[in-house]
Design a protein around this nucleic acid. Sequence first.
DNA 1: GTCTATAGCAGGATAGAC
DNA 2: GTCTATCCTGCTATAGAC
Lengths: 217, 217
Amino acid sequence: MNQKEKNDFPKERILNEAEILFAQRGYHAVSIREITNAAQCNLAAVNYHFGNKENLYLEVFRARWMPRARRVIDCFDKTLASQDSLSPRAVIQALTKAFLEGPLSDEERQRHHLLMARELAQPTKALELVAEQIMGPFFQKLADKLRVFMPENLGEECLKLNILSVFAVVLYFNFARVAVTRITGREYDPDFKARLMEQIIQFSLKGLGGSEKGDLR
Amino acid sequence: MNQKEKNDFPKERILNEAEILFAQRGYHAVSIREITNAAQCNLAAVNYHFGNKENLYLEVFRARWMPRARRVIDCFDKTLASQDSLSPRAVIQALTKAFLEGPLSDEERQRHHLLMARELAQPTKALELVAEQIMGPFFQKLADKLRVFMPENLGEECLKLNILSVFAVVLYFNFARVAVTRITGREYDPDFKARLMEQIIQFSLKGLGGSEKGDLR
DNA sequence: GTCTATAGCAGGATAGAC
DNA sequence: GTCTATCCTGCTATAGAC
């Protein structure tokens, strides 16, 4: 059975619509009626397939969010592997690219980040899940790649804080689109996004290590 | 009438409890019954004093969030005024300090940032209000203070993006406490917060301009 | 697996006594 | 201004026919 057919089962349609609505308005603001209407199926289908509303929410993370995050990480890995030499610039660039362009469509990415922003503001079991299976391992991978470029005397904690700072910049320009648009007066069109990527890379790279060309050992 | 007496009116108590609960769990997850119970007053009091739930939420921003934001900005202004010379380091330091230490208690600050994080993820009229009256003017002020230190050929947009990047780092370490604690294994105790402040200042300063000592003209 | 029907409850809002 | 009592809507969840 191919993907298209599979996506036409009510269970799949419910997951799709639930994700969209939860991302847009949050868990409590969305009713299962709304979800099943959007998915064009019966109200009772949610309870039949997922038991209850909370478990549907978790399943959105298990069956949608996490696979998508893995695609983003794969993209990061591939971009990095295609470079002939590993450098901080290459790492940051691959990271920024995977997060801001990468394999996701604009809507997909916005949904993805909104769901995570909500979890960070108000953690549920979903964050537990994601932190354990996705964020933790990926962060470790980043640390391993960057460690060799940092000064020898730099502690492990300092390395972590530096990487978190890079994440901060990358994520902020996604989470806080409203604020960014308001301040700069610019919409997130391809032009501005290219501009943003350049800004993020430059800023992070400098923040990470000093000047751009190889101060990092 | 002094502040203490004033705070004992039901209207004030409702605002206090509403802010706490909205920050903790978000608008939709909190009922006015819960709020009035916490405020030890009658259910009907919300509708009497604020008309309806939505307007109570807005009033939390008008009567609590915004005045508090003004206190933070005042703190920033005073810290900066106490320096004998204006430098990027002084500005960033004052900014970080005002946001991470500043005049707010830990609980107050967390509430404050949570409310804003929710607004950024899902903007309502409250963000409109705050953007117009607080964020916009403050951002302008920051830009004015930093502009003179940036290279002459640096465009206005680039300046804005740089300042936003600094905000990104400052705010992330507040918004994403859960993630930071999980990754670093450290709680936000005074010790770690001092460590964070140093990290944020260093990273931002480098990101902003290159090396720490005066590369910025 | 999918539907209808409905139980059972919690929410926002208001009327009207005090 | 504050209270009680109540209306009405909309929610989750389930029972049971098909």
